[in-house]
Write a protein that binds this DNA or RNA. Structure first.
Lengths: 138, 138
DNA sequence: TTATGTTGTAACTATGATGGTTACATCGGT
DNA sequence: ACCGATGTAACCATCATAGTTACAACATAA
């Protein structure tokens, strides 16, 4: 099946690293910890910056959190990297046959249910903060 | 972002149609209601059949539900069409650097949270039955 | 038996998201 | 001016998706 992009987990990794590191984290340093290409990190950092979660200093290098780890939830990160307009987890097939009872109703009825389901997931993501996550590292 | 395949919504549409139709539903008939190619329907019907939700009669044609609409939840359908092994909604980047505190812990810690979030979503899907969905059609 | 209409699949295709990569402009401090 | 960092554009290989054509297998009716 189609899974949610690793952008999300990489973003969480990135923020965690910034949170626990005493020194400034450069993109290359983070890339080394995540084990990927620095450009991938920069792209994600750009999204986190746009979402107001981090401040990145061009030229000099390094990133810092703009909120306390306890003020950043997984949902914040999730939203930041999905960064899209709609943000609907489920896709529904388009243009079903309006001449059919089911075709006429399915979109509306199903959408309500699926949005609720997505909300439940997001509610759970909102319950975990970066601070709580970091506290579990050993 | 990457969304969950329309296979799911098409499967729900398909089952709904079978449930509300007095006559037998052929793949072509369902395809007409969903507004897609019959082969797409047959593929999904194959998954629903494998999951024990429907019985499809080869040759003669037509499909029937193997359970009452009130006994089929959206989660059943979701599981049927995702039909994969792992069934993990979230992907986590692989092989983070074990020499780093974050890299060493992120996978384990994050996985717990994400699995919980997925469970919340699935719990909500399990609360809606096909019967309840159909009852909302007008 | 043959014809008809259906299901079951294989195979091919176009599309779009993803994630890695190279390249280079720009920035800021030494 | 130099150096190392960020910010992006551009390109690419890979993969899931969903539509399509084609055809074998099947069940029933004539």
């Amino acid at each position: 099946m189609k899974q949610i992009s690793t952008r999300f987990s990489i973003a969480v990794h990135t923020l965690s690293l910034i949170a626990v590191s005493p020194q400034d984290c450069t993109g290359d340093f983070i890339a080394g910890s995540v084990n990927t290409n620095p450009v991938v990190i920069r792209r994600i950092m750009g999204m986190l910056k746009k979402a107001g979660l981090v401040d990145v200093r061009p030229g000099v290098g390094g990133a810092t959190l703009l909120k306390a780890p306890d003020e950043i939830t997984l949902l914040d990160v999730y939203r930041a990297v999905n960064a899209t307009e709609e943000n609907r987890l489920f896709r529904i097939h388009e243009k079903p046959n309006p001449a059919c009872l089911v075709g006429r109703n399915i979109e509306q009825v199903l959408q309500t249910e699926l949005r609720d389901a997505q909300s439940e997931m997001e509610r759970r993501l909102a319950q975990t903060t970066l601070g709580r996550l970091i506290a579990k590292f050993e």
